[in-house]
Design a protein around this nucleic acid. Sequence first.
DNA 1: GCTAATACATAATTTAGTGATGTATAACAG
DNA 2: CTGTTATACATCACTAAATTATGTATTAGC
Lengths: 119, 119
Amino acid sequence: MSLRNQIRKGSTEILILTLLADQPMYGYLISQELDRRSGGYFEMKEGLLYPTLHRMEKEGLLRSEWQKTDSARRRKYYNITSQGREMLATQSADWQLFIRKLQEMLSDTDGLGAAQTAE
Amino acid sequence: MSLRNQIRKGSTEILILTLLADQPMYGYLISQELDRRSGGYFEMKEGLLYPTLHRMEKEGLLRSEWQKTDSARRRKYYNITSQGREMLATQSADWQLFIRKLQEMLSDTDGLGAAQTAE
DNA sequence: GCTAATACATAATTTAGTGATGTATAACAG
DNA sequence: CTGTTATACATCACTAAATTATGTATTAGC
């Protein structure tokens, strides 16, 4: 996968990997934590979250297990795999580079002054 | 459009707006300049570039005019509109916020230590 | 004269993300 | 104890960003 393809995936994967790198979590908790930790900025809809978790497990980045407690509401806990940790490191580096490159482009004026603005 | 929707669009629009804020350019030159200024990092395929330029013109962010010189190869020059400049300012702010929020999430460890890694 | 670069464009396909809906259990308020 | 809200999982139809492939035409260079 190319650098830009990973960026194209947006922040979804890296956010999930980041949360799970700290501790195992189930889907609903992931969405709550994302919302809480980002002050409401990162919300992840269920229609994106669950299919993404399934895909990431299929790719070997995560591993899931149903909670075995009997009385509680069923919860599928996701653990990050070593492959997932590698991916997190890769994607973090990719994002850092992307951010640096974008900042460079945004701040890069060629000194010719602004072009005329069409109406 | 929500903040995250703009981010979801990727860097395509903001890169085009940034280049055109300096000077009018035609499509082919935009792709060359992106490549050159980013040291090969940002390449924009024709299948993305041209439809995006058309869409942005339709949305009023750009205005195009065919070059009137007779001997030269035909070139469609794009100028940024005042609406385009507003959009550039908006999207720059959106990206700065997104980057800050993402950095916060990536650096935010809860002090509990890493979770076990599943194999 | 042939090939590569310039310069535009569209069409088919893939896939990230949205919005809607469905199921089931637990907690809570009236 | 009954209706509503929150928890917790999931899938489906749709939208649209990006890739890949293809097409047309002109100009430059070997």
